[in-house]
Amino acid sequence: MSIQHFRVALIPFFAAFCLPVFAHPETLVKVKDAEDQLGARVGYIELDLNSGKILESFRPEERFPMMSTFKVLLCGAVLSRVDAGQEQLGRRIHYSQNDLVEYSPVTEKHLTDGMTVRELCSAAITMSDNTAANLLLTTIGGPKELTAFLHNMGDHVTRLDRWEPELNEAIPNDERDTTMPAAMATTLRKLLTGELLTLASRQQLIDWMEADKVAGPLLRSALPAGWFIADKSGAGERGSRGIIAALGPDGKPSRIVVIYTTGSQATMDERNRQIAEIGASLIKHW
């Protein structure tokens, strides 16, 4: 067993022997301040990774656009098919120029040779490549099948209805392509620590998230040296922004954090800054 596999296998073990965790309302004060600064709703939840206990939450059962955070769930569904012998990570998928959609920095470079399922998941999570996500959605049967996968996990809230990039439209009061912070946090925890996926697939999923290259201005910008984070960000229309993450000190994750916002007129930089400040408060009061 590799060191990384050992780390993920012992996530519940280490967490069980940690000192009790206590909620700190100071972080919620910052979440509410972010709402004021952005002029928009902000949803927040913080779960203990081992027990699933909610440590703090704000608007945990209000719907927010998922945006690209759905790509972690998508690759979880792909990995479940791999575990069941219905898919192979090494299978190569070929596609054409007509398949390319807006923001496809990886797939646009491989029109000639195609990409493997493993490479597509890596591109979808680490670079948020939209064509990679659409190609992977095709392998599982489309958005409705991802929703069905989530329902089978016990998540009857999260739903995907459309493809990239239309799913980022974020129309107010439109339930399409949305989740709730509580539902997303619980589902992410199941994917990373539950028995739904094999140990190898859980490790692969967290490795992809740990290698995320496009979430630097968010929670990662607030992390002290030595902290662990595996995350996936999302951005959408109407001032929408979000991030889902597993993080913790001492090089291992111990909490799940989900943050979503929508309806702001603020710039992307300002949305990023507010999420980073929430992260800084979380870490300060850990």
Score class of each variant (00 low, 15 high):
M1D: 01
S2T: 14
S2W: 09
I3D: 08
Q4V: 08
Q4N: 15
H5N: 14
H5P: 08
F6C: 10
R7S: 09
V8D: 09
V8I: 13
L10E: 04
L10Y: 09
L10A: 14
I11W: 12
I11Q: 05
I11R: 05
P12T: 12
F13P: 07
F14S: 08
A15S: 15
A16Y: 08
F17S: 08
F17E: 04
L19W: 15
P20R: 13
P20A: 05
F22L: 13
A23G: 13
A23T: 04
H24N: 15
P25N: 09
E26D: 09
T27C: 08
T27A: 06
L28G: 08
L28P: 05
V29A: 14
V29T: 11
K30A: 10
V31K: 00
K32R: 14
K32L: 12
K32N: 10
D33T: 15
D33G: 13
A34P: 02
E35D: 05
E35G: 05
E35R: 03
D36E: 13
D36L: 15
Q37E: 14
Q37Y: 15
L38P: 07
G39W: 08
G39K: 15
A40N: 08
R41E: 07
I45R: 03
I45A: 12
L47E: 06
L47W: 03
D48P: 02
L49N: 04
N50F: 10
G52P: 04
G52T: 05
G52A: 07
K53D: 09
I54N: 06
L55T: 08
E56S: 11
E56N: 11
P60I: 12
P60R: 12
E61Q: 14
E62H: 08
R63N: 07
R63C: 07
P65C: 04
M66S: 04
S68Y: 00
V72C: 07
V72K: 00
V72T: 09
V72A: 08
V72I: 09
V72L: 05
L73N: 05
L74M: 09
C75Y: 00
C75G: 09
G76E: 01
A77P: 01
A77F: 10
A77E: 09
A77R: 09
A77Q: 14
V78F: 04
L79G: 02
L79H: 01
L79A: 03
L79R: 01
S80K: 14
V82A: 10
V82H: 09
D83H: 04
A84R: 12
G85W: 06
G85V: 06
G85Q: 10
Q86G: 10
E87L: 11
E87Q: 08
Q88I: 11
Q88S: 13
Q88H: 15
Q88V: 11
L89M: 11
G90A: 13
R91N: 08
R92D: 06
R92V: 14
R92W: 09
I93V: 13
Y95A: 03
Y95Q: 02
Q97Y: 15
Q97P: 14
Q97T: 13
Q97C: 08
D99C: 06
D99Q: 13
D99Y: 07
E102T: 13
P105D: 04
P105H: 06
V106K: 07
V106D: 07
T107R: 01
K109C: 09
L111K: 08
L111P: 07
D113F: 07
G114T: 04
G114L: 04
G114C: 04
M115G: 02
M115W: 02
T116R: 06
V117T: 07
V117E: 02
R118C: 13
E119K: 06
E119I: 01
A123Y: 04
I125M: 11
D129K: 00
N130L: 02
N130V: 01
A132C: 03
A133R: 00
N134I: 04
L136R: 00
L136N: 01
L137Y: 09
L137A: 06
T138S: 15
T138W: 10
T139W: 06
T139P: 03
T139M: 10
I140P: 00
I140A: 07
I140Y: 08
P143W: 02
K144C: 12
K144M: 12
L146N: 02
L146K: 00
A148D: 14
L150T: 08
H151P: 04
H151Q: 13
H151S: 09
H151G: 12
N152D: 15
N152T: 14
M153P: 01
G154F: 04
G154Y: 05
D155R: 00
H156K: 15
L160S: 11
L160M: 12
L160P: 04
D161H: 07
D161Q: 05
R162L: 05
R162T: 08
W163Q: 09
E164V: 00
P165S: 07
P165T: 11
E166Y: 15
E166C: 11
L167Q: 04
N168M: 06
A170P: 08
A170W: 11
P172M: 12
P172V: 12
P172Y: 11
P172E: 13
N173M: 15
D174H: 04
D174V: 04
E175T: 15
R176Y: 07
D177V: 01
T178H: 02
T178V: 05
T179H: 00
T179K: 00
T179M: 01
A182R: 14
A183H: 12
A183S: 11
M184N: 01
A185S: 08
A185N: 00
A185E: 00
A185V: 06
A185P: 00
T186M: 15
T186N: 13
T186I: 15
T187H: 05
R189H: 13
K190W: 09
L191E: 03
T193Y: 15
T193I: 14
G194F: 09
G194R: 09
G194A: 12
G194W: 08
G194T: 15
G194M: 08
E195V: 07
L197S: 05
A200R: 14
S201G: 09
S201T: 08
R202F: 03
Q203F: 08
Q203Y: 09
Q203P: 02
Q204V: 11
Q204H: 11
I206A: 14
I206F: 13
D207S: 15
W208D: 05
W208T: 03
E210P: 00
A211H: 14
A211N: 12
D212T: 06
K213D: 02
V214Q: 07
A215F: 03
A215Y: 04
P217D: 14
L219W: 04
L219N: 03
R220I: 03
R220W: 02
S221T: 13
A222Q: 14
A222Y: 09
L223E: 02
L223K: 07
L223H: 03
A225N: 15
G226Q: 09
F228G: 05
F228M: 10
F228Y: 14
I229L: 07
I229E: 02
A230H: 01
K232E: 00
K232V: 00
K232F: 00
K232H: 00
K232L: 00
K232Y: 00
K232I: 00
A235Y: 02
G236L: 01
G236C: 03
E237D: 14
E237M: 15
E237L: 13
R238V: 09
R238P: 09
G239Y: 02
R241I: 03
G242H: 02
G242P: 00
A245C: 10
A245P: 00
A246G: 06
L247D: 00
G248K: 02
G248N: 03
P249T: 07
P249H: 07
P249G: 05
G251K: 14
G251N: 15
G251W: 07
K252R: 13
K252T: 12
K252I: 11
S254A: 15
S254M: 14
S254V: 12
R255M: 05
I256E: 01
I256V: 14
V257E: 02
V258S: 04
I259L: 10
I259E: 00
I259R: 00
T262L: 07
T262R: 08
S264W: 04
S264M: 05
Q265L: 14
Q265P: 11
M268F: 11
M268C: 05
D269I: 13
D269W: 10
R271C: 09
R271I: 10
Q274L: 15
I275L: 10
I275N: 00
A276Y: 10
E277Q: 11
I278V: 09
G279D: 03
G279N: 03
G279C: 09
A280S: 15
S281H: 12
L282P: 00
I283L: 11
W286M: 07
W286E: 02
